[in-house]
């Protein structure tokens, strides 16, 4: 048996451990679940060390003597004080440092998700489809505007928004079905092709 085959069999074993949950909860599934969490964490720790700590903390400070970087390193370590009852408040500093970037997200976020989208919603209505999009966008927006009662002619118009959203959710649902099935297909292709070698 080749090494690759053995590796695939190990993969297949753990795949079946997880699938066994479909029948009912069992020790194999429980074992696999905890192993999964453990390996993911160990993997993340090692990669963070080799790909982040070494090139961005160790090398600049120790090898290139950029002593000033000791400050952000200490700042990062303050995260760990979260668990301390007395010094927990110090962990607010690294959080505050990363929260600063919210400043950039205000103008940039307004631009990307609001201004550009609004501009596109206001293009000249040259085709019937553009008209439908225009009406739909306004109706959906008004549907979530609760300061005016949804009654009379206004209520009827706002109701359009509901139908638009139902179609939108339907499309999302149809695509979600597709996505879930695709994931299963991928696993079965692994079992049938990579492990058993039955597809060509």
């Amino acid at each position: 048996m080749s090494f690759e085959m053995m590796s695939n069999l190990v993969g297949a074993f753990f795949t079946l451990c997880i699938f066994s949950f479909l029948y009912k909860d069992n020790p194999f599934y429980q074992m696999a679940e905890q192993l999964l969490v453990g390996i993911s964490l160990g993997y993340g720790l090692v990669l963070t060390y080799t790909r982040v700590f070494i090139p961005y903390v160790y090398q600049p400070i120790i090898l290139k003597h950029q002593w000033v970087l000791i400050f952000p390193a200490i700042l990062g370590m303050l995260y760990l004080l979260r668990f301390s009852r007395k010094l927990g408040w110090l962990s607010r500093y690294p959080i505050a440092f990363s929260m600063m970037a919210v400043g950039a997200s205000v103008p940039m976020g307004i631009h990307a998700t609001i201004l550009v989208q609004m501009r596109q919603a206001m293009v000249p209505i040259e085709t019937f489809n553009l008209f439908l999009i225009f009406i739909g966008t306004i109706a959906v927006l008004l549907y979530f505007f609760f300061s005016k009662a949804h009654t009379g002619v206004y209520g009827k118009f706002v109701d359009f928004g509901k139908w638009y959203m139902m179609i939108g959710f339907g499309a999302s649902f149809g695509l979600t079905v597709m996505a879930r099935i695709s994931l299963l297909i991928g696993r079965i292709q692994f079992l049938v092709n990579d492990v058993l070698g039955l597809l060509k």
Binding site: Y56, V57, P72, A73, L75, Y79, S98
Partner: peptide, 17 residues
């Protein structure tokens, strides 16, 4: 440089918890 140098330690938080 500051954001990179402070980045790796958050990982330890996950390990500890």
């Amino acid at each position: 440089p500051w954001s990179y140098a402070s980045a790796p330690f958050a990982m330890l938080l996950g390990v500890m918890s």
